[in-house]
Nucleic acid binder design. Sequence first.
DNA 1: TATTACTGTAATATTTATATTACATGTCAC
DNA 2: GTGACATGTAATATAAATATTACAGTAATA
Lengths: 70, 70
Amino acid sequence: MGLRKLKNSIGRKVKFLRLENNLSQEKLAEYVNMSREHISCIERGKNLASTETLYNLAKFFKVDIKYFFD
Amino acid sequence: MGLRKLKNSIGRKVKFLRLENNLSQEKLAEYVNMSREHISCIERGKNLASTETLYNLAKFFKVDIKYFFD
DNA sequence: TATTACTGTAATATTTATATTACATGTCAC
DNA sequence: GTGACATGTAATATAAATATTACAGTAATA
């Protein structure tokens, strides 16, 4: 998988987890201390989430960080 | 696992893969287009490798990127 | 001892990730 | 229709990742 596709894949997973938990981008941003705009970009595959960001998201959603690389 | 421990764990894995392949930090740096200094910091747990860096290392060493989060 | 290869480390510069601010659009309830 | 809520998006600013340069130290070896 190329980096471009990885970005999109991560974005889809973040969005999936967020919706699964019935959260708006704004609420999620608040809970994990990041900006709504950045979450939007990550979900749309515009930005690549950092290792630390993935770590924080995984912790919040109670999933293994490896999930983002499935 | 905390972020601190994750850093150290990733560092150990990078170093393990590098030594397993009989590479110096300098050679590895050359092959994956990053600085030797940064590799040194990652291995010692001083810096946290970005998602893109882990992606590139996994690709180079022919391991799954999930390996770094085991 | 002198040389070579390898690594640590610090200071500074650059690039990327992320935040902030602001505005636009769409949806849905009232 | 309008008001609240959700999301996209752009411009600028800040923080973190990474590069560059430079020097020190250790180990091996000729």
